[in-house]
């Protein structure tokens, strides 16, 4: 097999995986930027979004509508969690926020099991999405889902870029991320901004969840946890709290994961997750602000 094609194929794989990580990491970073909260329950919005789409599909909605509905359900779930669990502890110690979100994860996953059982379920998608595109005699292959993932990620990013630079709510969110107290002082409705931030972050997670389910073909209650851990790594590599950083981190992580397995000897590939998390620790130690974020006090 031609080495050039092999590399090209792996790059495509990396972009597709990286897009998903980026979608999750952006929401994580957005919430962190405003509330300084490491939101473990963020991954569960993927599960909520995917199950939302699945249920709407059962109710007879065409896939496109179910898809949009799933994103909306993810966004609503995020807002509900913020309103019921996070707002009462807002402003508490870092650890309190972190632990609250851990408990929310625990509840949501078990709720998912109670309602849907923990058996994975088939996630039906339209046939065209499964179609494989082959180039150069099948030496480069990718599917319509990969294309859809990349396109939808790009569209969402475009929307987010427009939102945070061109709308009042978006500008307010950035102000809140800069300094929550000051934003409140100048009269911004912080509660509303935080709700908007959670809606967007969770909607993105819902989208990632649906795409994840479409790629893997199944939905299950704990589907969000592993991507969430990876999104943490992505967000921190990029600079926790920075949207652009999360985007960059997502693609770097996607590339790293694919390349470790593709280009290193097979004795190394089982250690992929160890390498990824060692990188995370290295970043925390030597470059805690990541690649793009402004300086914050995190070390002694």
């Amino acid at each position: 097999m031609n080495t050039g094609f092999y590399i090209a194929q792996q790059v495509i794989n990396a972009i597709s995986l990286g897009s998903l990580y980026a979608l999750v990491a952006i929401g994580l970073s957005m919430v962190f930027g405003i509330l300084r909260m490491t939101n473990f329950a963020h991954g569960d919005m993927m599960m909520v979004g995917a199950f939302g789409t699945l249920v709407l599909g059962w109710l007879g909605l065409p896939f496109g509508l179910a898809f949009l509905g799933g994103i909306a359900i993810g966004a609503i779930a995020g807002v509900i969690v913020e309103r019921t669990a996070y707002r009462p502890v807002r402003g508490s110690a870092d650890v309190t926020l972190l632990l609250t979100s851990l408990a929310v994860t625990y509840i949501l996953e078990n709720l998912g099991i109670l309602v849907f059982s923990s058996s994975p379920r088939n996630f039906p998608i339209p046939d065209w999405m499964n179609e494989a595109l082959q180039f150069y005699d099948g030496q480069i292959t990718f599917t319509q889902i990969n294309v859809a993932t990349i396109v939808l990620t790009a569209v969402s990013l475009g929307f987010l870029g427009w939102f945070v630079t061109r709308t009042d709510a978006g500008l307010g969110m950035r102000a809140a991320a800069e300094d929550l107290g000051a934003a409140q002082l100048v009269g911004l409705d912080v509660n509303k901004l935080i709700i908007v931030a959670f809606a967007i972050a969770s909607g993105f997670a819902g989208l990632a969840g649906i795409l994840w389910a479409a790629q893997s073909g199944i939905v299950e209650p704990d589907m969000g946890f592993t991507p969430l851990l990876k999104a943490f790594v992505a967000a921190i590599i990029g600079g926790f709290g920075s949207i652009a950083g999360a985007l960059l981190g997502g693609y770097i992580l996607g590339a790293l994961e694919v390349f470790i397995v593709a280009f290193l000897p097979s004795e190394v590939s089982p250690y992929r997750d160890a390498i990824v998390f060692a990188l995370l620790i290295a970043f925390l130690l030597f470059r805690p602000n990541g690649l793009l974020n402004r300086t914050q006090e995190v070390k002694l």
Partner: peptide, 9 residues
């Protein structure tokens, strides 16, 4: 969720 690296190998 992605086995593409293994498959390419």
């Amino acid at each position: 969720k992605t086995f593409t690296a293994q498959i390419t190998k």
